[in-house]
Design a protein around this nucleic acid. Sequence first.
DNA 1: CCGCAAAAGTGCAGAGACTGCAAGATCGGC
DNA 2: GCCGATCTTGCAGTCTCTGCACTTTTGCGG
Lengths: 203, 203
Amino acid sequence: MDAVTTGLRERKKLRTRRALGAAALELAVTHGLAEMTVEQIAEAADVSPRTFFNYFSSKEEAVVAADVERARDMGERLAERPDGEPVLEAVRAVMHEMLGDTPRSREWIAQARLVKSEPTLVPQQLAAYAAAERELTAIIAERTGRGPQDLYPAVTAAAVMSAMRVATTRWLESDGHGDLVGVVDQVIDLLAVGLQSPPSRAP
Amino acid sequence: MDAVTTGLRERKKLRTRRALGAAALELAVTHGLAEMTVEQIAEAADVSPRTFFNYFSSKEEAVVAADVERARDMGERLAERPDGEPVLEAVRAVMHEMLGDTPRSREWIAQARLVKSEPTLVPQQLAAYAAAERELTAIIAERTGRGPQDLYPAVTAAAVMSAMRVATTRWLESDGHGDLVGVVDQVIDLLAVGLQSPPSRAP
DNA sequence: CCGCAAAAGTGCAGAGACTGCAAGATCGGC
DNA sequence: GCCGATCTTGCAGTCTCTGCACTTTTGCGG
């Protein structure tokens, strides 16, 4: 009775969706977003162009599809953290886990770079983050036993997602040579102290 | 030597931009987003369809144009707050000011409702918020005398914008009958205490 | 005042995104 | 094996969005 009831049908659909997303990302990276056409994406995923639009409502949405998968992944990991753990610490732990997965990280970095170079993708990526935020809100609400009218889960989820976004953006600006885990830790610390202005770090 | 050097040229451009934005919002509200065409917007703003695309890159962007104006407004007000004031308190004060402007609020509510009913607008609205966030980051950096490499301004700006977004969303869900100012105060308080889970309010 | 260079507006033509519809293919249960 | 439900596909058509070349407007210095 769960959503994980994987009939052949569901599995096939998921495979198609992933194939389309992967093809879109691949083509966008190699040929550029503007040059890539829906027809090419569909062909690469071995599906008709019309079918593409049954899965995504635009090229851009397909390119950032991996983001909503990552969001789901993050939600699942978060749900598995021990009960008493403070939310921000749980998030920190989950991020450490996810960033440890090097191959996944690579694909993720490629996508981040692409978004940075193609402004059209920004709105879509933000929308993907918003979806992640909704999941996160639900998880946090459950962990803290709060009702849906309570502001706490929503604000926390929103703040956390924003902070992660800032962390990755910053890290990407330093061209991926810095320590992303370290940056993530810093932004979580900032949230944890209530955004009090900390003493400037020695230059 | 300033950007405020308003020659006739600049002023006219701004007027056209506003006219296009207003027309787009108006038409979207009355006729629906899908039904409204760029041609109609252009006509309403007394400009050629081709010119529309010199200002906005899509219908959706035009509809949420007012958001980036509000963001600029927020930035300006924030810059005028007294120097020693903590950032979150400055934000609180500015929001109180802005929400006091009833006529502006009305238009803003109309737009918010529209976005809620037309999912296509969500990504664009988020992009507008992101623009606001960038401005806010700069202001906060200046207020706290921090360099652009410092994470504090960026995280604060991101968290604040997210919190405002949550506040307005929540308030809108209760159909605009609740107390938005009160909700804003609550979300700022949550940020200020470092997202510690507060005791559940009595049901 | 006048002419000029830069900036803004416009028309046109074309590629391609995206949608509704109706017909064909596939799956899951009985 | 059969049937309803779901998924895929082709088709036709509308509209978005862009590059380019051309006209108009603006701001400025003579």
